[in-house]
C-alpha cells in the first residue's frame, strides 16, 4: 500500500516556509514559479491556487522546504517574474494558516464510537458515513490536522486528501 495508509505521521512541514503570492491569472504562471523552485532544488510541499476576487489575478500559497539560506533569493526571483504582483514569506506569528483534510477510514462496527469521539475532539465533521467506512473532514492549522491524522492512524486509513495550507496575514498587513 502507499504511504497514505501507513501509520507513520505525515511529513512534518512545520519547519518549512510559507509563501503567499498574488499573480496574474494566466496560463503558464504556475509553471514559471515552479521553475524557480526546481532549479534551486526546493521541494514544494503544498501548492494552493485559486482565482482572486478580481478574476484577473490568482492567489497562491506555497509550503516549501529546502535550504533556508537561498530563500531570500528565491523570493526575489519570484518577485522578478513579470506575472508575479507580489510574493511574501509569512511566519506563524503574524499570519493565520488553515488547512483542510478529507480522511477515509475503514471501520469495524466495534470501532465506530471511538472514531467518532476522536473526530468530535478535533471539531471534525463526518461528511460521509457508510456501514464500513467513514469520510472525515478535518480543518485547522496544519499541526492540528497532522495530530488528528496521527491519532486516527490506529484505524485503517485508506486515503487522505489534504488541501495544503492557505495563509493570511493578520491585521492590516497584506498577504
Amino acid at each position: 500500500m502507499t504511504s497514505d495508509s501507513s501509520f507513520a505521521p505525515l511529513p512534518d512541514i512545520v519547519g518549512g516556509h510559507t509563501l503567499s503570492m498574488f499573480v496574474n491569472n494566466e496560463p503558464g504562471v504556475l509553471m514559471r514559479i515552479c521553475q524557480v523552485f526546481a532549479r534551486r532544488a526546493y521541494n514544494l510541499d503544498s501548492v494552493v491556487v485559486s482565482r482572486g476576487r478580481d478574476p484577473q489575478f490568482s492567489r497562491l500559497t506555497l509550503g516549501i522546504s529546502g535550504d533556508p539560506a537561498g530563500l531570500e533569493q528565491i523570493i526575489k526571483q519570484c518577485n522578478k517574474l513579470i506575472d508575479v504582483i507580489h510574493c511574501f514569506e509569512h511566519d506563524e506569528s503574524e499570519s493565520v494558516t488553515r488547512e483542510l483534510a478529507l480522511v477515509k477510514i475503514l471501520i469495524n462496527p466495534g470501532d465506530q464510537g471511538e472514531v467518532l469521539q476522536i473526530l468530535e475532539h478535533f471539531g471534525a465533521k463526518t461528511v460521509d458515513l457508510g456501514t464500513a467506512s467513514v469520510i472525515a473532514m478535518i480543518h485547522g492549522d496544519s499541526n492540528k490536522v497532522d495530530a488528528a491524522i496521527h491519532l486516527l492512524s490506529k484505524f485503517d486509513i485508506v486515503e487522505t486528501v489534504r488541501t495544503g495550507k492557505v495563509v493570511m496575514a493578520r491585521g492590516e498587513a497584506t498577504t
Binding site: P27, G28, M31, R32, Q35, R39, I82, D83
Partner: peptide, 14 residues
C-alpha cells in the same frame, strides 16, 4: 515553444 523557452527568456507570451 512557450514551455521550452520559459527558462531562457525574461518573459514570453502565447
Amino acid at each position: 515553444t512557450f514551455g521550452i523557452t520559459m527558462p531562457v527568456v525574461k518573459h514570453n507570451f502565447l
